[in-house]
Design a protein around this nucleic acid. Sequence first.
DNA 1: TCTTAATTAAAACACCTGTTTAAATTAATC
DNA 2: GATTAATTTAAACAGGTGTTTTAATTAAGA
Lengths: 214, 214
Amino acid sequence: MAGRTDTKTRILDAAEKLFAERGFSETSLRLITSKAEVNLASVNYHFGSKKELIRAVLARYLDVFMPTAATEIKRLHLAPEHASLNEIFSALIKPLLDLNKVRNGGTIIFLQLLGRGYIESQGHLRWFITTHYGQHLSTFVQAVSASAPHIPPAEMFWRLHFTLGTIVFTMASADALNEIAASDYGEHNNTEAIIRKVIPYMAAGVAVPVTSNE
Amino acid sequence: MAGRTDTKTRILDAAEKLFAERGFSETSLRLITSKAEVNLASVNYHFGSKKELIRAVLARYLDVFMPTAATEIKRLHLAPEHASLNEIFSALIKPLLDLNKVRNGGTIIFLQLLGRGYIESQGHLRWFITTHYGQHLSTFVQAVSASAPHIPPAEMFWRLHFTLGTIVFTMASADALNEIAASDYGEHNNTEAIIRKVIPYMAAGVAVPVTSNE
DNA sequence: TCTTAATTAAAACACCTGTTTAAATTAATC
DNA sequence: GATTAATTTAAACAGGTGTTTTAATTAAGA
């Protein structure tokens, strides 16, 4: 290995921030490399293509988040009583907030990347995540299902995606919403506060009894 | 007026479909005009710019949806008893499904456009909607607040945006989710079925008591 | 019908995109 | 210290973008 050994890291750091706040296709390699203060061609040299850079950015977070999240969920399973939905969702708070230790603003960056990826990539990210982290994912789904046994699997499938939409859309607009909330209600929430607001909302929605609509 | 009088309409029809399924920045004017079978320059001639075309596409739906939605909400207010959250949200079903009469697949196109707009436009759409349709919007917010008086205004602000995220993200991924649901659970849902699934979820989340998290 | 205005059409414009090339430079190995 | 490999650099490439221009065509008004 040679050269300033952190060129790859500089690119990843600059890219994830820009991707999170403006989206993948709205972020050019020239913008990334100028913010990272590296040469344009270094992206293709180190990552091969922009698409693979996007994958690398996401993987750097998923590789940290997924295992620790799954561990937390399994820890809940060991408890004598079944955990409540609120507890299960809350078990994700620590893994999420730990991403702030990995990098400044890591939590919200990760959630924003997730949202951008789901919406922009037309299913590619969904496929990538389920094939690479399917084990961890089903641990989570099983825990939720066990905690809300009155919800049939197909209905649970939809509700968990509602949940994903709730958190991901919220985080994508978090900055804008926070500004409005601050000026209209004098509130000032950080990422953790927003997560703690959204969990009861999601838990209630996931568990609400299925009714044949009037 | 002269020429094939429906050039503007042809552009709008082609644009909204492409915008909804691939996003605004991923859709080029050349793709739009080729699908619409009109000349490239006609977009700038009739709309001035791509940005104004986007606005026109959204306005064509909002101008139909917003008034009828507000009318439905007001009708609920006239009832002797306060409407439940489920009833309020359900009051939006008819205005939404009526968009299918305006154009084939109008309902899902509108919701997808809304989601794309909120996420891609970095607050521009939010500003546009609140300034142009603020009256209708606050009618809705008031109805919801009256139906869940135990939720403080600031909390309600957040929960209604959670709700927006839920529906909008769901619709943006509706096609992909439907495919998975069909292959994994043998389900086949149309737009209305998904809307009817999501309403109880949202209503439960909006109304859940506020708790100081453990 | 003739004239004027509105619309359509083809081409070019200026700029931005991701990627590749080939030379210069830096680091590692013998 | 010489040689080899890894990395960085500047430049060019090929293609796509929204927009503008200029001329041809079509419709409308006198």
